[in-house]
Design a protein around this nucleic acid. Structure first.
Lengths: 184, 184
DNA sequence: TGGGTCATGTAACCTGTTACATGATTAG
DNA sequence: CTAATCATGTAACAGGTTACATGACCCA
């Protein structure tokens, strides 16, 4: 249900169209939550029916018309409930397909295994690099939405988490490559 | 499709019943892939239809009968294909609900935010602790399945990855708690 | 004139979760 | 005697992906 709550969280900053939500997701939450466009529109539908959001039509001339969504009091209550009553154990309910690959990697020849890990390492470095863009985006959003408030503190924290995790992954990849080279 | 490939990987070590698979999942792959019992039986059904596995019935006297599953050549080919042709970018297609909570945490009072992070930290420490059991399990499986082979190298690497990641998460949690205390 | 952006959606499908259902044996 | 283990499944639902579908404007 996190998509629902992500939408509520964003609409809590201000009204937006489905398209705006999609863009904002891509710019700010993208690194820890990937969404497909079509899913946002479906979810907005469900949320409208559940009265968590309401919308009004905005007629535009040289652009397609928009549906502008706003969070309701019920939606705000749902958001707060999710934030404060989230069961932290769910956070450790992982599905990590890459680790499953590693687990069974003895089935491939040594060089193949090394290639896969080098590839992983490269991708980790790229993802870490792309977090800089996320950090910049946080800065931009801070100036737009959050001049007097302190949301940006938390936005930066999420990016920081990514950085530390990618560092750990890179360290692990180096270690793994060494182990395979020496022990296999 | 990782459940399918996880099953193929385990059956590649030797024939097993659905129940055995479930147990093995819990003991060895559990920390990076949680499965529900019912899903395994459904998946074994699909895989049988797809001829990736075959099974025979084993009549038992003082126990319910078992279906013992074996990987086929087609299944083995599918396993290798998955291992070697996996697109590493998928590994970074994350869904991290906890980070989404953090992102919107300004909506809660400071003390609530701190409570949530302390809770997260505690849980990280517990999960890290439970990796020791995973490491022990690897040792046991090594002795049973892998006396002359080197699968255990990769099994240990997956656990190592978990340890390094949890360390990073703990470090981040400490940092986050400090930031919130000082800046909020 | 062609690619990117703005803007919204539908339909089919796959994956995974939850709850339900059964029933015997064995260890403490 | 009671809880855990062995052993297998079904049905309904929720969540998410993929592919399809449309169409106008703007900039280079």
């Amino acid at each position: 249900m996190a998509l629902k709550h992500g939408i509520l969280g964003l609409l809590n900053y201000g009204e937006m169209s489905g398209y705006d939500l999609m863009k904002t997701f891509e710019k700010s939450l993208h690194y820890f939550w990937h969404v497909k466009t079509s899913q946002i529109y479906l979810e907005l539908d469900n949320m409208t029916k559940a009265e968590l959001v309401v919308f009004r039509k905005e007629i535009q001339e040289s652009r397609p018309n928009k549906n502008i969504f706003m969070i309701t009091e019920k939606g705000r209550a749902e958001l707060r409930k999710w934030l404060s009553q989230y069961d932290i154990k769910k956070a450790f309910n992982m599905k990590n397909e890459f680790l499953m690959i590693v687990f069974f990697l003895n089935e491939l020849p040594k060089e193949e295994a090394l290639r896969i890990l080098e590839n992983y390492k490269k991708q980790c470095a790229e993802e870490k690099e792309s977090l800089k863009a996320a950090n910049d985006a946080v800065q931009v959003f801070k100036d737009i939405y959050s001049v007097n408030k302190k949301e940006h503190i938390f936005w930066h924290l999420t990016v920081k988490q990514g950085e530390l995790c990618y560092d750990a992954c890179l360290e692990w990849a180096d270690y793994a490559i060494e182990v395979i080279k020496n022990e296999l």
